[in-house]
Amino acid sequence: MRQQTNIETQFFELIENNKDRINRICSVYAKNSEDQKDLVQDVFLNIWKALPSFEQRSSIHTWVYRITLNVCMRSKYEKLQRSKVNLDSIKIEYPSEEPKEAKYEQLYQCIAQLAESDRSLIVLFLEDLPYKEIAQILGISENYVAVKIKRIKAQLLNCLNAQKDA
């Protein structure tokens, strides 16, 4: 009973601290706002399901990023999809008049143009994670992360400059 309460407390703390991060990443993979909500709900559900078996072999931060990316990437594959979860208690509220500066939209558009695996790398880089942690989340070597980030960054900057010039 006490252990269950601990898990509940840990869960609430975890999603409160990470909900913006999770939402940001899901928005990169979502096709539209409805899809974004479904992804966020699915991430929360998977965190809740997996939390009791969290073994602290990695930091909880790394663990949340892994779940978020895995859920978001999995959603692309029709044959891996389960029936959609429907949790009314989780909502995404959009401000009625969201100021959208072109540079932010351009960034999202350029990220969306990247290959799926490159997208996961750049998102973690933009979240200011050290290469070591990115390597742990993705399951690749730290050196390889550095090489790939350099290449993807160049690609992203090219895209942003091209959009600026257009």
């Binding site: 940001r24 928005s27 974004q36 966020v40 989780i90 909502k91 959009y94």
Partner: peptide, 11 residues
């Protein structure tokens, strides 16, 4: 600094 793509609220 990009405006949040919505705010996650949960009950």
């Amino acid at each position: 600094n990009a405006p949040q793509k919505g705010n996650v609220q949960f009950d």
